[in-house]
Structures are given as C-alpha cells and as structure tokens.
Design a protein around this nucleic acid. Structure first.
Lengths: 361, 361
DNA sequence: ATTCCCGATGGGAACGTTCCCAACCCTGCG
DNA sequence: CGCAGGGTTGGGAACGTTCCCATCGGGAAT
C-alpha cells in the first residue's frame, strides 16, 4: 500500500481516482465530468458511475487556478444592518445564486480606508467582479485600479461622475424634489431636511455622486421653484459617524420658529426625527409632517403610517449583479448607467400645514 | 522576448518574477515573503524591494491549494433582511475581518433544500468552516457530513439536540418565561403568544432546538406556574411562508374575549401585531400590552416605545466566528455550547391590566 | 587541521484541475 | 489499396504557490 501524505479516513476523491476507477485517463475523466471535448458514450457513463461511487466533488480552487474564474463576486457596502443595504444585499445574493455565483461580503462603515482594504482582500481572493457602494466620490483609485486590472466594478447606489464604471442608482435628485414638492403642495413652507453625509466635501453639486448631496440638491431645487429663497435655514446635515440623528432632529425642532415638515434622507434618520418629536410632545402629522426615504417594514406598521419614497432595494442589488455578470462573461462594451425608478407611497404622516401652529412644551 | 500566454498590459507579478528581479530563487523569495524558514537579512530586503517594485500580490488561490486553508468562512442564514440576522451577520463579518477571514454569504429562506445546496456549494469552494442557522432540527445530514468531512460547523441561534456540533444560542426558554412573568406580574391573565414556526414537527419539547418552540415552552411554563391552566387558547403559530403576521394577529385580537397582552416572538411579528392593533383601533398599552423579542431600531423610536427582550445579536455572530476559528486552528476538543444572556428592556408598551376593558370597534 | 553543525539557498515535487497536442483507430472515398 | 479526416484517447504542461530535501559555506569545537 502506498503511503499517502493525507491518509485520513476519507481522503476526498480526485479526478485521478475517478479515472483509475473508471479505467480511463485523467483527460477523459475530466472531459466527461466537465462535459466538453468528445467522449464516447460508454466512457462517459463509466466515468459518471465511478464519480458517483467515489462521491467525487470537483475542487473549485484547482479549477479556478486554470480557468481564472472563481464564480464569486465581492460586495462592498457600508453597513449590512442598515435596512437599505440589507435589502440590497438580499437582492445581490438572490440574483447571484440564480446565476451560479457566490457573494463575499464586506462592510466598510463608510470608511474609505476600510473600503480600500476590502477591495484589496477580495481581489487577492480573485473575485470575478466587485459590487461597491463607494464611501467616497473622490478616493477611488483602488476602484479604477481594480477595473483596469481585469476585475470589473459596478457602482451601487452612488455614482462617481468622472469615473467610467458601470453604475446602478436611483434618481435621488428627482425623488427628493418630488417629495418636497408634495410637502409644498400641502401648504408647507418651513420644510426641513435632515441628513447624515460622508466625507464628500469635493462632491460636485451639478452632478452629485453621493446620494446625500443629490437629495439635498433636489430639496433645494423644489424649494427654489416654489419661490422659497432661503434653502439653508432648515437644512441639517450631520456626519456619518458619532452623530445621533435624534439629537440632530431635536436641535432642529426645538427652536423659536421650527419647521412644519421634515424630510429625512433615510429611515434611520426618520426614526431619529420621530424620536425627537416624541420627546418634544409633537404630534405627527398634526404638529409635524414627516416624509422619509426608504420603505422599511416599520414605516407601514407604526401609527401614523409614514409616507415614504420607496426605493427598489432588491432590484438595485439584483440589477448590479446582472450588470456585473454580463461584463464578466461578455465583451467589454461601454460603461452602462442604469437608473431605477422610485415610488412615492402616500400614507398618513403628512398633513396640511396650519399657519400659526402653537408649539406645546 | 519570450511569448507569454497572457501578455496583457500588466500581467500580475508572480513569485518567479519577484525572485528574478531580486536575483534569488523562488524558494528564497517565497520564504522572505511568507516569513518562514531562514532568510538572510539582505536577501529578505532585496525580495521585499522587488515585490514592492513589481506590485506583487500573492495569489491566494494557489496558496490555498497547498495549505488547504482559504481563510474564508461560510455563513448560511435564513434571511439577511430580517433585522435579527442582519445584526448577527454584522457581528459575523466584523469578527471575521478582525481575525483575517472573509465571509461567503448564503440565504436559505428557511428552506432545508436551499440550505443543503448552499452547504454543498460552500464546501466545494473549500471554506474553512461553516456558520449555520439550521432551517430544520431533523434534516441535518449535510451538517454532520460537512463536520465529519473536515469542515467544522457551528450552529447559530438554533441547536440540534442530538447533534454534537458547537452551538451559540441564547436561553430562549428562560427569556420567554421571564417576559411572560412580567406580563403576569402586571395583572395580565389573557396573554397571547404570536409566532411563526418552521417545519419542526419533530422538535423535542423537552429540549427544543428551534427558537420558536423554546419560546413557546417558556411561555407555557410561565403561565402554568402562575396557575393559568389553559396555555393554548391564546397561542397563535403560523407557518414561515405565506402567512402574514398582521392577519394572524388580527384574527387573534378581533375575538369575543381578546387577550390583554401579546408576546411576539420576533420583531416582524411585533410589527404585525401593532399593525392589527392599529386597524382595530386598539391603543397600546392602554388596551393592549405588547412585548417582543429583538430590540430593533424602531422599537425605541415609535410611540409608545416597545418593551423588548433584547438579544446580543452582534455578539451572537461574533462568538460563533471566534468559536469556529478556534476549532479550525486549534485541536479537536469536545463540542462547546455557548449560551449568551438576553436582557429585558422595559419601556412603555406594557400597562397594568384593566379587568373589564371595553373594546372599541 | 579535521570534524561537526547550523544558517542560508536552490531545485524539484506536490496540490487538483484544465488545456494543448500528438497518437491512434476506424471509416469512407478516390 | 492507400490516404484523408474525424472521433476518441492519453500524456504532458501549465496555473502559482508551499513544502521537503539536498547542498554549500563558514565558524566553533575537538
């Protein structure tokens, strides 16, 4: 008996094992199993039977070494606990599985350094492509490097204007403008926007890549077209980290001339606004109208139900995957920018503005 | 010039390239880079400089082929969109990254077939270990097969009693019992439990593996010890799929002698209860007290704030990862069952029971 | 001075698969 | 009957790394 280096109870069967069992060569066994080239019917059957008998399972690592494909995609997002990204990730994993791909997941917490590290690690693992919700619109060298290095990148949710990478986004500017228009139509004039933004100091207001700035610009545009010149008084932006949305909202609402409506740029901020309103004894929507991005499960269960700008979260992720796989498998066509539609869902958190509403302390 | 098979603009540098540049052999270069064996300081430095110059990045696939380690763990969970699993996954990815591991993610939607397929695919990709929230307590052949085949498995959130695998759970029975005791202490007697359970028909009531049954048993135990003999009237369990918690709760609350308190076994069900209560015009907590598992973000932002049984979601995931890595790297000690503590957080959704409360239609 | 040992180095094999190519057999056609 | 050609097969190389082992040189000890 030959001494095997790995002589455990059941050393996993390899192609040579199967070939030996079937009485053919490695090449023929490989061809029969991978179904390419030409193999005689009887040889094919013998190999199939031998593989079955030995419980042969192809070693994807070895296969990947040759083919250069791992059938694995990397997903680099901010925070899986954020309902928006949870939905996106769900869409990503489902679409990937349907196409025969797996997902390597990495969180960045909006930290560009963590994002660079994640991209590096995932590329070292030879993912076939990357889906990235970029933390910064400027610090993108690692993304172009990956793309140029043969690892396609699809930008998710956020765009990087001067970067010629595929992207899948929603029309944040238009959606925000629409939402604010609806508040204006209900007679509101003192409309606040509460947002947490990243380190996008250099983002371009004309063609913003970050969702935060795009929504802010949509907010400004809606106010201006309604003749509200001052678009900054009720604009509250905090930093991603360390800033509690509830505190931000509290400061906004607890002022001499508070807003009559608040537009939150995501569901976590909306919770902060609701929390602050509760602390101050403000009723929604009688004292304060509230609208937010993202249709989370609680938005349609709480009282009052919250009117929202719903994003197609799962579709966002699924579209990114399909776009990426097309690029991985297909040729190198021009970068494609997909914009998915949002939907405003009207519920009970918006009321007509009452001119001289009394504040209750 | 030799014709290279892959003659792209920048064929990624390999160890032979670095060795050539540094004027040493592959072996020495490999030793210098991987930091093992013995290498002279000057050789080490020359290799380091050459690697730097060529932008060398080790091919993890090739390395894994030799070492048998991929530094990748598989996470097989039900649904990333469920806040509980989102938190768990966050804990998993963070702990994994801290230990130098990556996470391959798969959703099962509580479908045993999907779970088997996921485990198969992940094993084919040669993950070093698996973290699984098993969909079934009986259909577990693939898990023992993986474990016996050298791919360690850690059970998450749910246990499989007769299976000798590591597990990380919380004391669901005790936590549920404690929560119901608190409702009893507030004078409630007609206490309902609303739950969605999987296909655990054969789960053992004495030592339940599924969280659902464990919580139900805790509920029953609390009622019995308080002298409430009938523990089934207000028990509502629906199936995982196709059953809307709101509908289930609606049927429960819209009855001749409705419960005065509801215990929901997870946050999605709690939303259903809240939604049904709102539809029926019931006020929380005046008409209906509500307690739920899982401290989600909305539970502390809505009005009234919801009293909850908080689970250490991130810790659950992180502990599973650390336990798994210990087994991957260390010897093969006995299976370890870790139980993490829960915490009851008292808020405003529980009121003293009023004897003859009037229902408002 | 010879022996011994240890640090340093290089060559070759191995991991398990796919790919390329040469060899082979058999049939059909000129 | 010889040759072309297609289906089938097997051997060898390659992917990029780590590991084992043999070799070599120099300093210390006998």
């Amino acid at each position: 008996m030959t001494t095997n280096r790995r002589s455990g109870p059941h050393r996993p069967a390899t192609i040579p094992d199967v070939a030996r069992e079937a009485g053919v060569s490695r090449s023929t066994a490989s061809r029969a199993l991978a179904d390419y080239g030409s193999v005689s019917p009887e040889a094919r059957e013998r190999v199939r039977a031998a593989a079955e008998k030995l419980g042969y399972r192809p070693n994807q690592l070895a296969r990947s070494m040759i083919t250069g494909r791992t059938h694995t995609l990397g997903a680099v997002i901010a925070d899986i606990q954020n309902p928006f990204f949870a939905g996106v990730t769900r869409g990503i994993t489902d679409a990937a599985r349907a196409a025969g791909y797996q997902i390597l997941l990495a969180n960045t917490d909006e930290d560009p350094a963590a994002e660079r590290a994640a991209v590096k690690t995932l590329r070292d693992k030879h993912v076939d492509g990357l889906i990235v919700a970029p933390a910064s619109t400027t610090d993108t060298g690692h993304l172009t490097a990956a793309h140029d290095g043969g690892c396609p990148v699809v930008l998710l949710d956020r765009r990087v204007p001067r970067l010629d990478l595929d992207s899948v986004t929603v029309d944040n500017h238009g959606a925000a403008q629409d939402a604010v228009r609806r508040l204006l139509a209900m007679g509101h004039r003192r409309i606040a926007l509460v947002s947490l933004v990243g380190n996008d100091a250099t983002d371009d207001p004309v063609d913003p890549g970050s969702t935060g700035l795009a929504r802010i610009e949509g907010y400004r545009a809606a106010l201006r077209e309604a003749g509200v010149e001052d678009t900054e008084t009720y604009l509250r932006t905090g930093a991603f980290h360390g800033q509690d949305p509830a505190v931000l909202a509290h400061g906004l609402l607890d002022s001499p001339e508070p807003p009559t409506a608040v537009f939150a740029t995501d569901s976590l901020i909306a919770l902060g606004v609701l929390s602050a309103a509760r602390e101050l004894g403000l009723r929604v929507p009688e004292d304060l109208s509230v609208v937010t991005f993202d249709d989370t499960d609680w938005a349609r269960a709480v009282r009052p139900r919250i009117s929202v700008v719903a994003q197609p979260v799962q579709e966002l992720g699924a579209t990114a995957v399909r776009s990426l796989i097309a690029r991985v498998q297909g040729g190198t066509h021009r970068p494609q920018h997909t914009t998915l539609p949002t939907e405003f869902i009207e519920r009970e958190s918006v009321a007509r503005a009452t001119k001289g509403r009394k504040r209750r302390k």
